[in-house]
Design a protein around this nucleic acid. Structure first.
Length: 576
RNA sequence: GUCCCCGUAGCUCAAUUGGAUAGAGCGUCGGCCUCCGGAGCCGAAGGUUACAGGUUCGACUCCUGUCGGGGAUACCA
């Protein structure tokens, strides 16, 4: 049940005829920012007053008179320059809660189903994953879960960097430095050692003086692309080890992909793509290169360089061609860092020129992870944080606290709790950030377990479940035949309202592709629940009816928390 | 050079896209366990939203300029 949408629908009626297009004004109905202004507020009277040449408060009165209240809204109040403050009828809230309780998806509607390809994580194979890879991976995973929950068909595709220069580096290093015994014992570790060793021999990117190691690595890459047998053999040998390395992290993060079509997958298609675009007249030869000329003032997009090599735009065009032919999606989402904005702008323009005009191409960008010095963490600087190490550390830290607080629990359960809490903390710390903002990496914050963290939500959930255990109460009846809740106290009412905001929150989150909207909602729910928990005894409620009502509120809270955490890829635990 | 992003409490971040007295967490200080889990709760201090103008009923948000930081800029993607 989308509360906001229902209120807006009433305003659509009330505003009809007051403006040529009422939608912008309907959109000015939103949750009240301060509870003392009611539950929701409409800010449209002020801006409407201008075109109607009336006083804002008069317009507000007019809207108020035309607003169908029914058994849904209380008489609105007009305040300040012309705000219309809205309050919901408590009986209506109670009835909606009961409907939510009966639904196995908490009465969240499915949206009109779209087919969406989502391209995320996309690490460079053969390099150790670091904390920077976390963002694409878990933002993409969370959006996947959210879109699927809302009824969309989502195809996840990990566009691995499995064909690039890092293999040239590895090929060069392997021949010179491999320790055969070490490689046999632990190939991944040995390859990582080789990679780092060669990297250290190379000069900085901004150092333009000749770099023989860099040139040698480049040559190995070129040989690989040209089909050199020995390099190809080694590439095929390295790949499974490298894949296993990143797969280990994915298993731990509980992230999975429908497809892992890396760059190498598209290599054979590149000449065909260029030929095809030339033949259709979309691309032209220019000065020895092949380009797609874009409108506006943009420079052309080069799809084949003068030396015959292809660019990443070519590779991206091959990818889109494959995806369109294979899945014909309505949208393709690229969860890639903000530094690549310009590339995507140009690539999308080129794709439209190439005829992909109907598919919704979207760069879901995210900010960089910065070091304490506010500069982007880079592998080269040695300042980066190894992802596996981060996860280990988080789980260890959680484990220490579990052992301290819940020593009575069996070993296996404590281990499981530590994993859920530790991984959850790391994911939440990242997802609760506005996607587009850069953030400064901070161990303490990543591992934090108090304040606005996953642990806090997991704890609220566990405490909640504990009530049912303690009272020896089964939750099921509250889902099959729930009572009509009593919402007499402000704490009960506030919690109920938060619970009802579930669907509008998920819709807002998916519209902006913004998981942090879910985390702020969770925080609001948890705070409301705290107030309720503190002030409204459940098991010791004054009457059996009140006890049932509060059990229902508790159960709904638990389900909302579990659902939302689940959409972020974070587990709940029954005890912790 | 050109383009993009950012500058908000001591620190890390929000602010529902122009709304009412700019909010959280951490940290600091002070309270709360005869009471369903203290990984918790309640309270306090802390702000010229980098700066200067402008737009309007109203600006952290939009426009112009200045200062400071970061990033991108056809041969890694």
């Amino acid at each position: 049940m989308n509360l906001l949408a229902q209120i807006q629908e009433r305003f659509r009626t009330a505003l009809a005829g007051l403006a040529p297009d009422v939608e912008p004004f309907v959109a000015m109905v939103k949750p009240a920012q301060d509870a003392k202004h009611g539950d929701y507020q409409a800010n449209c009277a002020m801006s409407l007053a201008k075109s109607l040449v009336k006083k804002p408060r008069e317009v507000a009165e007019q809207i108020k008179r035309r607003l169908p209240l029914g058994d849904f809204l209380l008489e609105p109040e007009i305040a300040g320059p012309g705000f219309i403050n809205l309050r919901l009828q408590v009986n209506w809230i109670a009835q909606q809660l009961r409907e939510m309780a009966k639904s196995d998806r908490l009465a969240v509607h499915a949206q009109a189903a779209k087919t969406i390809v989502i391209d995320f994580s996309s690490p460079n194979v053969a390099k150790p994953l670091h904390v920077g890879h976390l963002r694409s991976t878990i933002i993409g995973d969370s959006l996947t879960r959210l879109l699927r929950f809302l009824g969309h068909k989502v195809i996840t595709d990990n566009h691995l960097g499995d064909w690039g220069k890092q293999f040239g580096i590895l090929l060069y290093g392997y021949r010179r430095y491999v320790d055969a015994d070490a490689f046999r014992a632990d190939p991944v570790r040995e390859l990582a050692r080789i990679y780092v060793k060669v990297r250290k021999e190379m000069k900085d990117d901004d150092d333009k003086t000749p770099d023989p190691v860099d040139d040698a690595a480049r040559l190995e890459t070129a040989k690989l692309h040209a089909g050199d047998e020995e390099n190809l053999r080694l590439w095929k040998m390295f790949m499974p080890f490298s894949l296993e390395e990143i797969d280990k992290i994915y298993r731990r993060l509980e992230v999975s992909f429908d497809h892992m079509h890396g760059e190498s997958f598209y290599n054979d298609m590149l000449p065909g793509v260029v030929a095809d675009l030339l033949q259709k007249g979309i691309a032209q030869r220019s000065d020895g290169a092949v380009i797609i000329s874009l409108d506006e003032d943009q420079p052309p997009s080069i799809i084949q360089k003068r030396d015959g090599a292809f660019t990443y735009t070519t590779s991206d065009l091959a990818t889109i061609k494959y995806r369109m032919e294979t899945w014909s999606p309505d949208a393709i989402l690229y969860v890639v860092g903000v530094p690549q904005s310009l590339h995507f702008k140009n690539f999308f323009a080129a794709a439209r020129h190439a005829g992909y005009t109907l598919v919704d191409l979207r760069h879901i960008s995210f900010g960089s992870v910065l070091g304490e010095d506010r500069r982007v963490l880079r592998t080269r600087d040695g300042g980066t944080i190894d992802l596996e190490k981060l996860l280990d550390e988080a789980v260890e830290h959680a484990r220490a606290i579990v052992d301290e607080n819940s020593a009575e629990l069996p070993e296996a359960e404590r281990k499981e709790i530590a994993e859920a809490v530790g991984i959850g903390a790391v994911k939440y710390a990242d997802l609760s950030q506005n996607r587009n903002s850069d953030y400064v990496f901070n161990w303490k914050k990543m591992l934090a377990m108090d304040g606005n963290t996953a642990t806090y939500m997991q704890y609220a959930y566990a405490r909640n479940r504990s009530i049912f255990r303690k009272g020896n109460v089964a939750a099921v009846p509250f889902r099959t035949d729930p009572p009509l809740p009593v919402l007499d106290s402000p704490f009960e009412r506030a919690l109920a309202l938060q619970i009802l905001r579930l669907e509008e929150t998920l819709v807002a989150a998916v519209e902006d592709y913004q998981p942090s909207i879910i985390t702020s909602y969770l925080w609001d729910v948890a705070k409301s629940y705290s107030g309720f928990f503190q002030n409204c005894p459940v098991l010791k409620a004054e009457t059996p009816a009140l006890r049932d009502s509060r059990l229902l509120l508790s159960d709904l809270t638990a389900r909302v928390i579990q659902l939302c955490l689940g959409l972020l890829g974070i587990r709940t635990v029954e005890r912790m």
